[in-house]
């Protein structure tokens, strides 16, 4: 099965949300201004790279000021043949850097690569679930929750937000999804204020009033929380469900209703 499309129709935030919630493993390639490649393991970011940009470990460490220019040059000339994993091990064993130092730099590089992707409004993407992880690269396990929240915060277009959350009279409830930990997310003060009011009894409109937010502000925050898979939209508790003016089953006993539906089932089976 394909997972492909254009960022114009399905944004980077939505893509990351899908990978995160479906715990996907595989390679994502996006062809936009340049080509971006990322690899995910069980819904976590393992690797990210923009084509035409050096992403070898020596360069990453130098840019992150973990090694000096002289050290960088030495590594390039003497250990240029080593892949990132081998070079990382060499640096740890030689006592130059700790594993934590190296991982922090690599994680920061991958995150910054993904953050730049948020600026892309167009680009063809394809996710390949059968692709092998990049050879010789240091793979990380970065949860996508914070990245998704960050990407969703960038959505400023009123029309899109209105499409995403058309009805402010709906309520929110926390999802019961395992692996979603609110405490691990970097929420803003405004987002925490909204979170504190989340309850199936409170409509989004009521939360906006209580937190003194405009429609645009509340929509933006609710969109972030939805994209991060933290909350879902529900009909407010206690609200009367609209009744259709007339239903085909109305006025019949339960047995008659069941009989009618069973006759339909039997007929469709026999088609």
């Amino acid at each position: 099965m394909a997972l492909k499309g254009n960022l114009r129709d399905f944004s980077v935030t939505q893509l990351l949300n899908l990978i995160h919630l479906a715990h996907k493993t595989g390679a994502l390639k996006v062809k936009g201004e340049t080509t971006a490649n990322a690899y995910f393991r069980e819904g976590k970011l393992a690797y990210a790279h923009m084509d035409n940009e050096p992403d070898d470990l020596a360069t990453i460490l130098y840019r992150d000021k973990k090694i000096t220019r002289a050290q960088y040059r030495t590594l390039k000339s003497r250990a240029g043949h080593l892949n990132d994993k081998a070079l990382g091990l060499l640096l740890i064993n030689a006592g130059y850097l700790t594993q934590e130092d190296i991982l922090a730099s690599v994680q920061s590089h991958y995150l910054s690569t993904m953050q730049r992707l948020f600026a892309w409004a167009e680009g063809l993407f394809v996710f390949d679930a059968h692709a092998a992880p990049p050879n010789g690269k240091i793979l990380t396990k970065i949860g996508l929750g914070n990245l998704i929240i960050e990407g969703a915060r960038r959505l400023r277009e009123w029309e899109k937000l209105q499409d995403e959350i058309p009805n402010l009279d709906m309520a929110l409830k926390f999802t019961e999804r395992p692996g979603t930990d609110l405490r691990k997310l970097n929420l803003s003060v405004e987002e925490w204020r909204v979170v504190s009011y989340i309850n199936p009894r409170n409509t989004i409109r009521q939360i906006a009033r209580a937190t003194k937010m405009t429609d645009l502000e509340i929509r933006r925050i609710v969109y972030s929380l939805l994209q991060a898979g933290l909350v879902e939209l529900v009909r407010p508790e206690g609200q009367t469900v609209p009744k259709p003016i007339h239903t085909a089953l109305e006025g019949k006993s339960k047995e008659e209703q069941k009989s009618l539906v069973n006759r339909l089932i039997a007929r469709i089976r026999g088609l």
Binding site: A2, N6, R8, D9, F10, D163, P244, I245, T247, A248
Partner: peptide
Amino acid sequence: LSEGMLGFIVMVDSTRPETFREARSILE
């Protein structure tokens, strides 16, 4: 058209993600 219906089916083209948002809106 929805007056008196027993139920409804929302068709979505699996090959056109650009229509997913609209499908969600129709569903709602």
